[in-house]
Deep mutational scan, measured.
Amino acid sequence: EMEYEEITLERGNSGLGFSIAGGTDNPHIGDDPSIFITKIIPGGAAAQDGRLRVNDSILFVNEVDVREVTHSAAVEALKEAGSIVRLYVMRRKP
Score class of each variant (00 low, 15 high):
Glu1Gln: 00
Glu1Thr: 01
Glu1His: 13
Glu1Ala: 02
Glu1Arg: 01
Met2Thr: 02
Met2Asn: 03
Met2Gly: 01
Met2Cys: 02
Met2Tyr: 02
Met2Leu: 02
Met2Glu: 02
Met2Gln: 02
Glu3Asn: 14
Glu3Met: 11
Glu3Cys: 09
Glu3Ser: 09
Tyr4Ser: 08
Tyr4Gln: 06
Tyr4Lys: 10
Glu5Pro: 10
Glu5Thr: 14
Glu6Gln: 04
Glu6Gly: 04
Glu6Pro: 03
Ile7Gly: 00
Ile7Phe: 15
Ile7Cys: 08
Ile7Lys: 00
Thr8Arg: 04
Thr8Val: 12
Thr8Phe: 05
Leu9Trp: 07
Leu9Glu: 00
Leu9Lys: 00
Leu9Gly: 00
Leu9Pro: 00
Leu9Gln: 02
Glu10Asp: 07
Arg11Trp: 05
Arg11Val: 06
Arg11Leu: 07
Arg11Tyr: 11
Arg11His: 05
Arg11Gly: 12
Gly12Ser: 12
Gly12Cys: 03
Gly12Trp: 10
Asn13Leu: 06
Asn13Ala: 13
Asn13Pro: 06
Asn13Arg: 13
Ser14Ile: 13
Ser14Cys: 04
Ser14Glu: 05
Ser14Arg: 06
Gly15Tyr: 09
Gly15Leu: 12
Leu16Lys: 03
Leu16Thr: 06
Leu16Gly: 12
Leu16Asp: 13
Gly17Lys: 15
Gly17Pro: 04
Gly17Gln: 12
Gly17Trp: 01
Phe18Glu: 00
Phe18Cys: 05
Phe18Pro: 00
Ser19Leu: 02
Ile20Gln: 05
Ala21Met: 07
Ala21Pro: 00
Ala21Asn: 05
Ala21Phe: 10
Gly22Lys: 04
Gly22Ile: 03
Gly22Gln: 14
Gly23His: 04
Gly23Thr: 06
Gly23Glu: 03
Gly23Met: 02
Thr24Ser: 08
Thr24Gly: 09
Thr24His: 04
Thr24Ala: 11
Asp25Met: 12
Asp25Thr: 13
Asp25Pro: 05
Asp25Val: 07
Asn26Asp: 15
Asn26Cys: 03
Pro27Val: 07
Pro27Gln: 09
Pro27Lys: 06
His28Cys: 04
Ile29Arg: 10
Ile29Leu: 12
Gly30Asn: 14
Gly30Asp: 08
Gly30Arg: 12
Gly30Lys: 11
Asp31Arg: 07
Asp31His: 09
Asp31Pro: 12
Asp31Gly: 06
Asp31Lys: 05
Asp31Leu: 11
Asp31Thr: 13
Asp31Val: 09
Asp32Phe: 09
Asp32Ile: 09
Pro33Tyr: 13
Pro33Thr: 10
Pro33Gly: 10
Pro33Arg: 13
Ser34Trp: 15
Ser34Gln: 14
Ser34Asp: 08
Ser34Val: 10
Ser34Cys: 07
Ile35Ser: 03
Ile35His: 15
Ile35Gln: 10
Ile35Thr: 14
Ile35Pro: 13
Phe36Gly: 09
Ile37Phe: 01
Ile37Ser: 02
Ile37Asp: 00
Ile37Pro: 02
Thr38Met: 10
Thr38Ser: 13
Thr38Arg: 09
Thr38Glu: 10
Lys39Asp: 09
Lys39Thr: 14
Ile40Ser: 01
Ile40Val: 15
Ile40Arg: 07
Ile40Pro: 01
Ile40Gln: 01
Ile40Ala: 02
Ile40Gly: 00
Ile40Lys: 01
Ile41His: 08
Ile41Gly: 06
Ile41Pro: 15
Ile41Lys: 03
Pro42Gln: 10
Pro42Ser: 11
Gly43Met: 06
Gly43Ala: 11
Gly43Trp: 04
Gly43Tyr: 12
Gly44Asp: 05
Ala45Met: 14
Ala45Cys: 14
Ala46Glu: 01
Ala46Arg: 01
Ala46Asn: 02
Ala47Ile: 10
Ala47Phe: 08
Ala47Gly: 09
Gln48Thr: 10
Gln48Ala: 04
Gln48Ser: 08
Gln48His: 05
Asp49Leu: 05
Gly50Tyr: 04
Gly50Leu: 11
Gly50Met: 11
Gly50Arg: 09
Gly50His: 09
Leu52Ile: 12
Leu52Tyr: 01
Leu52Glu: 00
Leu52Phe: 03
Arg53Ser: 10
Arg53Gln: 02
Arg53His: 04
Arg53Gly: 03
Arg53Pro: 00
Val54Thr: 07
Val54Ala: 10
Val54Tyr: 07
Val54Lys: 08
Asn55Trp: 08
Asn55His: 05
Asn55Met: 13
Asn55Gly: 06
Asn55Phe: 13
Asn55Arg: 12
Asp56Leu: 00
Asp56Trp: 05
Asp56Ala: 03
Ser57Asn: 12
Ser57Lys: 12
Ser57Gly: 13
Ser57Tyr: 12
Ile58Asp: 00
Leu59Arg: 15
Phe60Met: 11
Phe60Gln: 14
Phe60Thr: 15
Phe60Ser: 14
Phe60Leu: 14
Phe60His: 11
Val61Trp: 01
Val61Pro: 00
Val61Ile: 10
Val61Phe: 14
Val61Asn: 00
Val61Lys: 00
Val61Asp: 00
Asn62Ala: 10
Asn62Thr: 03
Asn62His: 11
Asn62Val: 00
Asn62Gln: 08
Asn62Trp: 05
Asn62Met: 03
Glu63Leu: 06
Glu63Tyr: 10
Glu63Asp: 11
Glu63His: 09
Glu63Arg: 07
Glu63Lys: 14
Val64Arg: 12
Val64Trp: 13
Val64Gly: 11
Val64Pro: 00
Asp65Gln: 15
Val66Trp: 04
Val66Phe: 08
Val66Met: 06
Val66Lys: 01
Val66Gly: 01
Val66Cys: 08
Arg67Thr: 15
Arg67Met: 03
Arg67Trp: 05
Arg67Gln: 08
Glu68Gly: 05
Glu68Gln: 05
Glu68Pro: 04
Val69Asn: 08
Val69Phe: 14
Val69Lys: 12
Thr70Leu: 07
Thr70Trp: 03
Thr70Met: 11
His71Gln: 03
His71Met: 13
His71Trp: 13
Ser72Glu: 03
Ser72Gly: 07
Ser72Ile: 13
Ser72Ala: 14
Ser72Leu: 08
Ser72Cys: 11
Ala73Pro: 01
Ala73Met: 10
Ala73His: 12
Ala73Thr: 12
Ala73Gln: 10
Ala73Glu: 12
Ala74Leu: 05
Ala74Ile: 07
Ala74Trp: 07
Ala74Gln: 01
Ala74Tyr: 04
Val75Cys: 08
Val75Phe: 06
Val75Gln: 04
Val75Lys: 05
Val75Glu: 09
Val75Trp: 07
Val75Ser: 10
Val75Asp: 04
Val75Thr: 13
Glu76Gly: 13
Glu76Lys: 08
Glu76Tyr: 04
Glu76Ala: 07
Glu76Pro: 01
Ala77Lys: 10
Ala77Val: 07
Ala77Pro: 02
Ala77Arg: 11
Ala77Tyr: 05
Leu78Ile: 07
Leu78Tyr: 02
Leu78His: 03
Leu78Asn: 01
Lys79Gly: 01
Lys79Asp: 01
Lys79Val: 01
Lys79Gln: 02
Lys79Asn: 01
Glu80Trp: 04
Glu80Gln: 02
Glu80Thr: 04
Ala81Glu: 07
Ala81Phe: 05
Ala81Tyr: 06
Ala81Cys: 07
Ala81Trp: 02
Ala81Thr: 05
Gly82Thr: 15
Gly82Val: 05
Gly82Gln: 13
Gly82Trp: 03
Ser83Arg: 08
Ser83Gln: 06
Ser83Asn: 15
Ile84His: 06
Ile84Asn: 15
Ile84Phe: 15
Ile84Leu: 13
Val85Cys: 13
Val85Gly: 01
Val85Arg: 01
Val85Ser: 09
Val85Met: 09
Val85Tyr: 02
Val85Asp: 01
Arg86Pro: 05
Arg86Gly: 10
Leu87Phe: 01
Leu87Val: 09
Leu87Pro: 00
Leu87Gly: 00
Leu87Cys: 02
Tyr88Thr: 03
Tyr88Ile: 01
Tyr88Trp: 01
Tyr88Gly: 01
Val89Pro: 00
Val89Thr: 03
Val89Asn: 05
Met90Leu: 02
Met90Tyr: 03
Met90Asp: 14
Arg91Met: 13
Arg91Cys: 14
Arg92Met: 11
Lys93Ala: 03
Lys93Gln: 14
Lys93Asp: 10
Lys93Phe: 02
Lys93Thr: 03
Pro94Leu: 05
Pro94Gly: 05
Pro94Ser: 03
